[in-house]
Design a protein around this nucleic acid. Sequence first.
DNA 1: AGAAAAGTTCGAAAAATCTCGAACTGTCGG
DNA 2: CCGACAGTTCGAGATTTTTCGAACTTTTCT
Lengths: 115, 115
Amino acid sequence: MTPDIAPIPHLDLPHPEPGDLKLTQVLFAFSDPERLAIVRQLASGPLDMAQCHLSDASTPKSTKSHLMKVLREAGIIRNEASGRGRRLTLRRQDLDARFPGLLACVLADTPDGAP
Amino acid sequence: MTPDIAPIPHLDLPHPEPGDLKLTQVLFAFSDPERLAIVRQLASGPLDMAQCHLSDASTPKSTKSHLMKVLREAGIIRNEASGRGRRLTLRRQDLDARFPGLLACVLADTPDGAP
DNA sequence: AGAAAAGTTCGAAAAATCTCGAACTGTCGG
DNA sequence: CCGACAGTTCGAGATTTTTCGAACTTTTCT
């Protein structure tokens, strides 16, 4: 017999509404070097997850997925299905609208201790 | 007999140099609502620690001290002995010099979800 | 001097995060 | 259809933060 409940595809993950972003949550998400590096990569434009590299290439997928989850739940990135993979997009407008200047000055800082 | 080692006064705590502030560490320190509230109070000017209130007035001193420690070690506030207490100062210039605009947009956000 | 006020530090317990493997769901190529 | 890809989710263990009391130091008041 046909199952009475849908398989619940686990694609299209939840994203917070633009107005619901919380400053402390966003700051926390930015406060990790690995996540900040991801944000910097996305600053140049959307990227397929597979093209988005971590500092350590041998990091398990589940860990990478978790980093993305923190960024997504904070409202910093959008994560949507795209073909067999996922497309990551920086939510620049939503961030700028809610916290003007924040993204700019976070991106402005030099990744390491450069001159 | 006189002790041969000095008592090592535990006043004048260590503060990072202006140039040594780390973005991720600063963001992390800002990412807690209680610490952010402290920063907002200090935005109006230096305050004696005793006049700097937490959301819950019954919080133990040691907890309050720890919150200040995180802010101090990130380079966000200065904590110096003053009389029998401690004077807290927002390191506005050092922050602005190292991360232009960051403090401004963090302070600009409304504490709660205000209109 | 003695006691109270104001904080810091230390250590331990509690809570939140992170990491990673295993299992699972979809998509694409043969 | 079947197997390789690409990622998410779950749970357990490891690591990091937070919380709080107790002990201690310095300053001020009487």
